[in-house]
Amino acid sequence: MYWNRRAVRPTHRAAMAAFGAMLALSGPTGAARADELIPFKVAISTPVVSILPVFLAADGGFYKKQSLDVDIISTEGGTKGMQVLLSGEIQAMHVGLSPVVAANAQGAEVRAIASTTNTLPISLFSAKKLTPPLPKGTTIGISTLGSETDIALTIALKALGLARSDMQINQIGGTSQRFAAMSAGRIEAAPLLEPGTTAARQKGFTEVYDLSAAKTPWIFDAVVVTTDYAKDHADAIQRFLKAYVEGAYWGMANPDKAKEVISRRFKTKDPAVIDSTYNEFKRLMPRDARPSVEGSANVIKQLASTGLKLRSEKVEDYVDLGPIDALEKSGFIAEMQRQYAVQ
């Protein structure tokens, strides 16, 4: 067995180069930031108006104020995000109640603990002026199957007297992705919310059905955690909620700063889109971030009516009001109202 010297060396070098490259590539990720901060990963389903407090808390510096090192990722879809939450990769998921109900039906133990949107702020748009509004075979974009946009679409189609099975439903991603896909012609219709709705109206898209007009109580977007995490990390959750609520109040009290955040995070420069997104946020945001019990009951009822076998229809099996109660009892929310003078 002889190793030819000339033969070995380049191989060696290649191997070392590969190893070196690996080290160089993996270097920065491993580096921890300040030691005293509690690492906390939160995922949003997509950058839209109903997750704005997550960004406001980051850009207003409130996570740091609460000694949290928060990492925000976007999963482009609620159900996918719920899978990620269950995997333990993140500590909290910002998502509607529907995936919570669906996951718990299959034996997961997750709860919504705070809400930004106790209604359905969704409108179904079509890229073309079609009669009837959505003929058979229309390609409709949603974020992911079973997520809030999907449920909303089901409700809208039913209200329009259309059959879901007649439509081509594609998983596209969040509102901005669906809007872009509609503009590009990749899909013909999609449920949208701000900043997508204003952009869609400007673009001349047809509003086929406005779900928000009905003002149905709902839980469209909420902070969701696993019961295990809630039990073992009550302190981290309180810190997160404090930063999150303060972010929301800071945004409501400082329109200019909040609009900067909207412009940067939602990647839009259009003042009309920014304004209406901001106004929508102020309209939707419950001042105590409390999930609506009536809304929860509606979501549960809706999912039960689609044939999903639920383990229970009790709201407390899907929503945990404990953390928000504790926050209120500590006087934090009253303090926020005083400090930021928001009614």
């Binding site: 995922a43 990722i73 996918k80 995000g81 899978q83 990620v84 269950l86 995997s87 990769e89």
Partner: peptide
């Protein structure tokens, strides 16, 4: 995705 998340682990 359910076991390892959406990041690099999966």
């Amino acid at each position: 995705i359910l076991w390892f998340g959406i990041g690099m682990n999966s």
